[in-house]
């Protein structure tokens, strides 16, 4: 058990394990995404007030949920790389940032597209939407800060501190609709008590959330593999892989 964890710290092992996971996770993700979209977008009933425009929930909510969860992945990886100086945690942190930024952008964009017909405006500076925009800037900030340093060890430390400081934003986003008066409605899926979304609409939504978690994991692992190859490009194991692929 522990040897498995120790092996994760070695780049060729991490590269191989990530590859093995991806081999079966990518097909599962594709099936879940297609299945969830067909179920949610085609087979469920329209909403009693919004009609068909509510269906954007099947993209908007999963993207937003995973964007928040992905930030914790990035920040905790950052903390591990600060405390234990694990190089591989640094790789996870760097790989998570662009994926999280993309998901946050999708959530903001689909929210705006839904907001226009529903609320009557593309954008409003309420607490939920503004704090989500800050999340996008935090993700982009980590990406940019990493690139700004020539010394990648210093870059990793700076990014880890930035993501730790930004972590306070996540509970703010989550609770913003309860703490302040906002235009954005409170959560429909509740951890305790009954959800205020009909079960026939809830199950495809839960499937889509699971599919987006899997999608995030796939993108994260692929990013990590690319980053590992780049970092270790002078080592023997990368040359071996490159030689195998290059001779074809």
């Amino acid at each position: 058990m522990w040897t498995f964890f120790h092996k994760l710290g070695s780049p060729p092992w991490l590269y191989a394990i990530a590859g093995a996971i991806l081999r079966w996770l990518v097909p599962i993700t594709l099936v879940a995404l297609v299945g969830g979209m067909v179920w949610g977008l085609l087979l469920t009933s329209p909403d009693f007030r919004q009609g068909n425009s509510y269906r954007i929930i099947y993209i908007h909510v999963p993207a937003a949920v995973v964007a928040l969860a992905g930030y914790y992945v990035m920040a905790i990886a950052g903390a591990i790389s600060l405390i234990w100086r694990m190089k591989m945690a640094d790789v996870v942190m760097k790989a998570a940032a662009p994926v999280g930024a993309a998901l946050t952008f999708i959530a903001l964009l689909t929210g705006a597209i839904w907001g226009k017909p529903t609320w009557g405006t593309w954008w409003v500076w309420d607490a939920r939407i503004t704090s989500m925009l800050i999340l996008l800037f935090l993700y982009l900030g980590v990406v940019a800060l990493y690139e700004a340093f020539d010394n990648k060890e210093a870059a990793g430390k700076a990014c880890a501190v930035l993501s730790l400081v930004g972590m306070v934003n996540i509970p703010i986003i989550y609770k913003s609709v309860d703490w302040w008066y906002s235009l954005h409605q409170p959560a429909s899926i509740k951890f305790s008590g009954e959800s205020t979304i009909d079960p026939s609409m809830l199950y495809p939504l839960l499937l889509m959330i699971a599919a987006f978690y899997a999608l995030f994991t796939c993108c994260l692992l692929m990013n990590m593999r690319a980053e590992l190859l780049q970092r270790e490009s002078r080592t023997q194991w990368v040359k071996k892989i490159a030689g195998k692929e290059g001779r074809r």
């Binding site: 329209p46 909403d47 409170p186 026939s200």
Partner: peptide, 18 residues
């Protein structure tokens, strides 16, 4: 000068609402 509709957190098919 501007009116925005505030949607609540309830989602259901029309038959259920009926």
């Amino acid at each position: 000068t501007e009116i925005l509709a505030k949607h609540d957190e309830n989602y259901m098919p029309p038959e259920v609402a009926y």
